[in-house]
Design a protein around this nucleic acid. Structure first.
Lengths: 241, 241
DNA sequence: AAGTGGTCTAGACCACCGT
DNA sequence: CGGTGGTCTAGACCACTTG
């Protein structure tokens, strides 16, 4: 799992932006300078900058340089596959996770069948975790983890970070996800758990895949609509589908 | 505005996937084969494949090949900066646009000040367009276009596609956007326009920027919550912020 | 004219997968 | 083992910006 030179450079520049060594509205050192700074070829530098570019950390301007953007002001993008505990860490939130359910199943619970109708019967684990911020319920995460590849799920991992457990202990290669955001009616049980006065919630449903394209996780996240906020950064794409 | 070889290859492969010449769950020709097919170097092929990879059209698997994914089933990602008329075209929707307002302003209307509090006074155009699908109101788009760089906005462009007008007539280099999705209370006027029974709507607010990082457009899209659906494809990223 | 990013190349070595 | 994708290189030419 060694990191590539490109990734290390991207991480290094990203952290220097974060810590103010490279400031917003200023240019990064030129690609030529970066090659000597990091002792690599220019293409390697460019691949690292491409990562920062697509994340929205910099804007490359031909003939001038790579400008550092400031997205902090309006809070930065949350998209991508990022687990709650990772978010918690990088945002410095005072969040808390309450494990409500962790049980082995031979088949998907009804709530997953309703939301993922194409999914066949499969063994796995049903997980329910309530996320609290400042002591108030914010999100209810319902997960279904498929039995192959996941055959054990310690309570401790569920309470801490299942992604860390998957990647570091089980060596799963988590690769991509498809998500949909909708507004849904919810039943009294969920309404109680989230302490909502009305019966609608924002639902983020996602299918999570490994590098070999196998599905390993379904997630239903029910958000308090008053607190829900999804932030995204998008570049205009050249490919028309 | 000539397209690069990389982009042309990416477009070509994308269209072959779309039209079934490369089928889901099958592998693309290997990178070496593609070099001879397109008569380019391997790095150029790889850059083209990277585009398809980040769009979620293919999944690269080391030692095996590039697998074509099928996202069509659950409908494919809508994210990115894509105008309504572009979406309309590529999805084949039976949509209709009703121009409700187009006026010159010396300052931002209150609704934009409320949602973009950091924005200073600036001249521009206020645009309101209602999007109908099957004759029913689906989205109300409110746009504010800044006067530099936009100094005229023909009624015809507003009714057709402002992005096409910006890119082809004004030669603006539309580059990126930051978006937030929230659930908001709306007033009676908007409620009437969208024909909503309750007073909440999904609000997609975005700031749209040119390549030189100047802001040229603010957009507030109010969606009927019962019909709102946001689809996204995300890859797990290596960079931790 | 000099410096910048944008594109492309031909080659190299590696890690992984299958037979 | 041969084929695949993953990484990296050193160099080239171009288009754009600024002085």
């Amino acid at each position: 799992m060694a990191e590539s030179k490109t990734d290390l450079i991207a991480q290094d520049i990203a952290s220097k932006i974060k810590h103010g060594q490279f400031k917003s509205h200023e240019f990064l050192p030129s690609e030529n300078q970066l090659t000597t700074l990091y002792g690599t070829s220019r293409e390697t530098i460019r691949k690292a900058l491409d990562q920062l570019n697509s994340l929205g950390l910099i804007q490359k301007i031909k003939g001038k340089g790579s400008l550092v953007l400031n997205l902090e002001k309006y809070s930065f993008p949350i998209s991508g596959i990022t687990s709650f505990s990772e978010l918690n860490k990088s945002l410095g939130m005072k969040a808390q996770t309450k494990l409500l359910k962790l049980e082995k199943c031979d088949d998907l619970p009804q709530i997953f069948k309703d939301n993922f109708p194409e999914q066949d019967k499969q063994a796995g684990f049903y997980l329910r975790r309530l996320r609290l911020i400042n002591g108030e319920p914010e999100v209810l995460d319902c997960d279904y983890l498929f039995n192959p590849p996941i055959d054990t799920l310690p309570r401790e991992a569920a309470e801490h970070s299942i992604y860390e457990y998957f990647e570091k202990k089980l060596n799963l290669d988590i690769s991509y996800a498809t998500k949909t955001i909708t507004v849904e009616k919810i039943n009294h049980e969920l309404q109680d758990i989230l302490q909502l006065s009305n019966s609608t919630a924002v639902l983020v449903a996602s299918r999570n895949f490994l590098n070999d394209t196998s599905l390993f996780q379904l997630t239903l996240s029910f958000h308090n609509p008053k607190k829900f906020r999804f932030v995204d950064f998008a570049r205009r794409r050249k490919i028309k589908l």
